[in-house]
């Protein structure tokens, strides 16, 4: 594992073609949690989140304007899957509320990223443990306007250990930014997982 990580890190540093398939790189570098139950939230009113959720095969919830409508689903999942993993691509306020709620069930944040558009610029700002933060940042950037798809495919690979986090930013130029809202992707997992 360590050698792979080191390899990928050095590959990233030397900018080799590995990142042409960033999801593969990530899966090698991050804990692979394919078997863990996953609950995914998305706000389908936002184009990117709609795209994202259409690719997710796990248990999923399309969010209402009233995030309170989804408290029961979250609570039930936390109780039934204490080793599970909750993730989403949502409005910022929904993440804020769900994070607060989940902490009472022992689920804490281990990854979050804001995705914001300003003029022709798309900015991803990732907060996660250092190594995955840099990998995800690069992967999201490489995915260009397909970043929601990339996220959907890599939900199971998002960091799930609770370590000190850093924040890192990547920007890229994309067309058609007007139609896109500010969104946050995030992942929470139980503290026993660390």
């Amino acid at each position: 594992m360590l050698t792979r990580r080191t390899f990928i890190k050095s590959a990233l540093a030397s900018n080799v073609a590995l990142l042409a398939t960033p999801s593969h790189a990530l899966q090698l570098a991050l804990d692979n949690n394919q078997d863990k139950p996953l609950l995914v939230f998305a706000d389908e009113r936002a184009l990117n989140a709609k795209e994202f959720i259409s690719q997710v095969n796990d248990q999923k919830e399309n969010l209402d304007l009233d995030i309170g409508q989804h408290f029961d689903v979250l609570t039930k999942f936390c109780k039934e899957s204490p080793h599970g993993h909750i993730a989403g691509l949502t409005r910022d306020s929904d993440f804020f509320v769900l994070e607060q709620l989940a902490k009472d069930h022992g689920f804490y944040v281990n990854y979050s990223a804001t995705h914001s558009y300003d003029g022709q610029t798309l900015t991803h700002e990732i907060t996660a443990p250092k190594e995955p933060a840099n990998l995800i940042a690069t992967a999201l950037k490489n995915a260009a306007d397909q970043w929601p798809n990339w996220l959907a495919k890599n939900m199971h690979s998002l960091p799930q250990s609770h370590q000190a986090m850093i924040t890192t930013k990547r920007q890229l130029t994309v067309p058609n930014t007007q139609q896109h809202n500010f969104l946050v992707s995030w992942s929470l997992s139980a503290s026993q997982n660390s």
Binding site: L65, D66, I67, G68, D92, S93, F96, V97, S116, N181
Partner: peptide, 23 residues
């Protein structure tokens, strides 16, 4: 959501306001 609030039906809709600006 105001109709709910004025009859004491709990909800969280007002948090939507926070999305007026990103973050």
């Amino acid at each position: 959501y105001r109709v709910k609030l004025m009859k004491g039906t709990p909800n969280m809709t007002e948090f939507s306001l926070l999305n007026w600006i990103g973050g």
